[in-house]
């Protein structure tokens, strides 16, 4: 598996360089004018790094949730986590218009609340089944979507213009604090998920068997859900809804490396980072000097790839 990991790491380095080299404005990498320095260091590089952190976070969260729920369709978007974060962001927009630091905080709170609600709904006297969990996720997701739609139709157009764009997945609104926040969230979240990889492997056989092996199933669930909420909350706050990353990337990784979560989770993070950097590169240069929403690109690539994978298996 080492070769595959090295390959993904190498790919990420190459993609990072390509992402830094190309953009709406041409930059010579040997001799930079003051203006080109500003373009490269103030605008392009922060955005490329943010894309990497968002991609890594979403893909790792997807991999973790898929293992935990033993469902290949499990994804932050399907489980209400993303929409919870989106609603949190929206409330921050509406209630505390000018307090920018509250947006990621509210997004995280939204992600956590949505996770808890889904979790509680899925619980029953006989314990929690995966089916109930996915079903609750779908219901919470659709409910939150309608609340968001309701808000957007009721509120002032000018106030919500930036929000609607952000909702489509948009990395152009990169701020330095957003990049650092996503970095911290990605590092913490991925380490927590990685630390639970062994337990997740055992749980994939069956939760009873895992209990027999001494796995504290409840604790694993809590940690994986918490880490996913952190990863998704930070990503959504920084970039809106960049879809399909958490779904497609872990699937491709599993095809190449098998389903051992000790490799699937870190490899998904590496591959997810490359995927979103490339998708955002397309969004930046395709119709330059105009821009496309990156969420549209990831969906445009992700959906056909996913269908292809489904048909192959």
């Amino acid at each position: 598996m080492l070769w595959f990991g090295s390959l993904l790491a190498l790919l990420l380095v190459v993609v990072l360089i390509i992402g830094a080299m190309f953009g709406a404005e041409r930059i010579s990498l040997t001799e930079l004018s003051v203006q080109q320095q500003a373009i490269l260091f103030d605008i392009r590089l922060p955005r490329v790094f943010l894309a990497a952190f968002v991609g890594a976070s979403l893909a790792a969260a997807g991999a973790g949730l898929q293992a935990l729920l033993r469902n290949p369709l499990a994804e932050p978007y399907l489980l209400g986590v993303s929409n919870g974060a989106a609603l949190g962001m929206m409330l921050a927009f509406v209630l505390f218009e000018n307090v920018e630091f509250l947006r990621p905080v509210m997004a995280f709170i939204g992600a956590v609340v949505a996770t808890i609600v889904v979790y509680q709904m899925a619980k029953s006297r006989t314990g929690m089944t995966v089916e109930r969990l996915v079903l609750s996720g779908v219901i919470v997701t659709t409910f939150l979507s309608s609340v968001i739609v309701l808000f957007t139709s009721l509120l002032d157009a000018a106030k919500l213009r930036s929000f609607t764009f952000w909702l489509l997945g948009d990395l152009s609104q990169t701020t330095r604090s957003g990049v650092y926040l996503c970095l911290v969230a990605a590092v913490v979240g991925i380490i927590v998920l990685g630390s639970q990889a062994r337990a997740l492997n055992l749980m994939m056989i069956g939760e009873r068997d895992a209990l027999d092996f001494g796995v504290e199933v409840g604790r694993v669930r809590l940690l994986v859900f918490g880490a996913s909420a952190l990863l998704v909350g930070a990503s959504v706050a920084a970039s809106g809804s960049v879809g399909y990353v958490g779904l497609v990337v872990p699937h491709i990784v599993r095809l190449a490396s098998g389903s051992d979560n000790r490799s699937v989770i870190p490899f998904s993070a590496l591959a997810g980072a490359s995927f979103v950097i490339l998708a955002d590169l397309i969004a930046r240069v395709a119709i330059a000097p105009r821009e496309l929403p990156v969420g549209a690109i990831t969906a445009l690539i992700g959906a056909p790839v996913f269908i292809f994978l489904l048909r192959r298996n």
């Binding site: 709406a24 404005e25 500003a38 103030d42 605008i43 152009s172 330059a288 000097p289 105009r290 821009e291």
Partner: peptide, 17 residues
């Protein structure tokens, strides 16, 4: 720039001066 109300690349915006 094409379209009436385009979303502009910040790189381009910075270069416009």
């Amino acid at each position: 720039v094409s379209s009436a109300f385009p979303k502009l690349s910040k790189e381009t915006a910075l270069a416009l001066q």
